[in-house]
Amino acid sequence: MIQKKILSASVSSATALSAFFILAIVAVVMGNIIIEGSSTITWEFLTGKPTEGMTQGGIFPAIFGTFLLVVIMSIIGVPIGTITAIYLTEYANQRSPFARLIRFAVNTLAGIPAIVFGLFGLGFFIQFVGSSMDKALMPAGQLRWGQPNILWASLTMAILTLPVVIVSVEEALKSVPRELREASLALGATKFETIWKIVLPNSLAGMLTGGILAVSRGAGEVAPILFTGAAYFLPKLPNSLSDQFMELGYHIYIMSTQSPDVEATRGIQYATTLVLLVLTFALNFSAIFLRYRVRKNMAH
């Protein structure tokens, strides 16, 4: 009896300890970034351009670039992922070789390291698609699409986040009870009407969450845009799909490794990291909030 009590007490304290350990890590990481970074964050920092070899000034071009990147990425990736998920869960025969092949492809895609997507984007979008477009559209020898730009970076990022979108939309669709589908079909609704009027509205919360999680994943990745569109430094904002752009994650990377004076950029590095974290957290929280709101609307 005593032994059992000791065992139970030690298990519960061990689990509590490891939970505390994780909390502690988060607290240390966050605390460090907030303490070191917050003093640098000013209105000018958020809205200004980098100056003095990026040891001074702000990071607005990087914030804007990140924003633009995830917007274009979502416009391309979310519809494709959603339609794929609808096909997989609603239409495909679950045992058909074709459906299995798509599922296998999605799982494989999810397991590929981000840097490989970057290389793929460089090889496929820039050197193949872009160069072909230049040959067809531009005067001989001129380069417009056959070089890194925000379109290719967004497309690469869309492919990277596709598995996240597909899997979360699939989960959302599967969570719609069979009873509701049957009720609709029994009333003489077609399969499409049932999907459109019952399944999709009832899985909206899950789909939104999936979309936002994909965006926040995309906002945090640097490797895929390394070769496909991110710029070291740009004095102006991109104003065409064939322009390069600055990005928060990439900005942190170059400031801490490529800057002529790494020590001088320390404060900016912390502050940029803080901005990136706040942005990703804000996206995650809005996903949770949206899901909560939609669920509540559904219930009442």
């Binding site: 009870p177 009873e179 509701l180 009720a183 079909l185 029994a186 009333l187 003489g188 019952i198 219930a299």
Partner: peptide, 30 residues
């Protein structure tokens, strides 16, 4: 068309997560 002619009531009541009005109007709207 067949299922419009033959209605079904299930073991577990399964109203749509919609208003009472929209539940009843679902079939006619289709």
């Amino acid at each position: 068309e067949l299922r419009k002619k033959i209605g079904m009531i299930f073991q577990r009541s399964n109203p749509f997560p919609k208003s009472i009005y929209d539940n009843v109007a679902y079939g006619p709207r289709i």
